[in-house]
Amino acid sequence: MGIDQRFWAGRRVLVTGHTGFKGTWLTAWLQQMGAVVTGFAKAPPTDPSLFAASGLAGRIEHLEGDVADVAALGEVVARVRPEIVLHLAGQAILRQGFDDPVGTFRTNVMGTVAMLDAIRQVSSVRAAVLITSDKCYLDQRRTCAEDDPLGGHEAYGASKACAEIAIQCFRAAYFPGSFTCGIASARAGNVFGAGDFAPSRLVPDLARAFLRGELPKLRSPEAVRPWQHVLDAVAGYLRLAELLHQRPEMYSTSWNFGPEAGSEWTVSAIADALASAFGIQGWESAPPLPVQEEALLRLQTSRARRRLGWQPQLGMAEALRWTAQGYKRLYGTGDTNWLADQIARYHAGLQEQDARPTEGELVDLMTHAVARTSQHEAA
């Protein structure tokens, strides 16, 4: 599954939430491929921030605003007339959702509704990928598949479930059977990578502690999450957008993006591996958050693997090494060249992966070879 740079070169793309961690990685990749990117988001949510350090604001059209402001977002969409929309803007911290449920529902639900309403009022958009979360499922004790019931027991998860329902509503009411505009939602597992400075999130908390020479505190050491490097998730979004643009009637649905089944790591295993990459050992236990968190969360990703040809490229050990390398350079010198370097390495790996024959292609080649040999012997 490669990402087609020729597809993105010169294409008008609107990214919301581009100042956040995942949005910065996505925007940097799009910019490297030559896309004409407009970003719309609030100011970077952390200080420091990867977006500010990267200098991306000077290489794209960078607009600041509230995605839940219906009029402001509508004006941007109407003026930019994007061909592809990647909607990442949202409140992404579970603890913040507990402390500010109203703000969380406003951003995650009304921000999604505002974007969908803006899209339906322009004719330029051919594909829209709206990012929600793997926390949108009602029963997270099972391996969650895209058609499982939606719901949530805390504001963050519930707001993402509501956003999914809004996407389904708009798709049915305003884009029924549409062959001109594809509307899809993407639900990724827990992403990590260098440059995340968010509070109450495992990998940035670990990196901050290790770089200060302190022992990190783990809330739920044995909890299991569908961890994946940010580039694996972003590659899924880009691949989905490409196919959605080409065949909206086939790809306008919801999609899970997560690690290989059975490869999920516990919180303590992540901490141990990242500590080793930083040359530090040890961690301490901490009281859990006053928020209901499931001890086990797994995603069924066969839909994306089978229909998009997507699969994670970075194993956990390699992904954590890339993460440690980026943090060390960012904290040590302020250098962000590693961001473009890691994107280029990942992209090149995808192209190499596409150059290799698949299992099915190998069977065809072998069958063809056997047939040719039989014909030769018969002659």
Rank of each mutant, 00 (worst) to 15 (best):
L299K: 02
L308G: 05
Q246E: 15
A277Y: 03
D66T: 07
L218R: 06
P226N: 02
R95N: 04
L130A: 10
P216W: 05
F7R: 13
T132Y: 06
H87K: 09
I270S: 03
L202Q: 04
R79D: 14
G65I: 05
Q300M: 10
L362Q: 05
P45H: 12
G236R: 06
I183E: 13
W8L: 02
A304Q: 08
W227K: 11
A269L: 09
S220V: 15
C181F: 10
V67S: 04
A28Q: 05
T24F: 03
A273M: 09
L339M: 02
S178E: 13
P259F: 14
Q32T: 06
A273Q: 15
F278I: 08
H376T: 12
F192V: 11
R59I: 05
V370S: 07
E83G: 09
S200Q: 03
T323L: 13
G182C: 08
N337M: 07
G20K: 04
R321S: 04
R142M: 06
L330Q: 06
A155Q: 09
G189W: 09
V102I: 07
F21N: 01
A114R: 03
K217Q: 08
T107Y: 05
C144K: 02
L339D: 01
Y156D: 02
A89Y: 02
A71G: 11
V191Q: 10
T107I: 08
F98G: 11
R303N: 01
S220R: 12
A209Q: 06
K328F: 00
I131P: 00
A166S: 12
G2V: 15
S302K: 03
V67C: 13
A78R: 11
T104F: 00
T16G: 14
I280S: 08
M250V: 05
A233K: 06
W338P: 01
G17T: 08
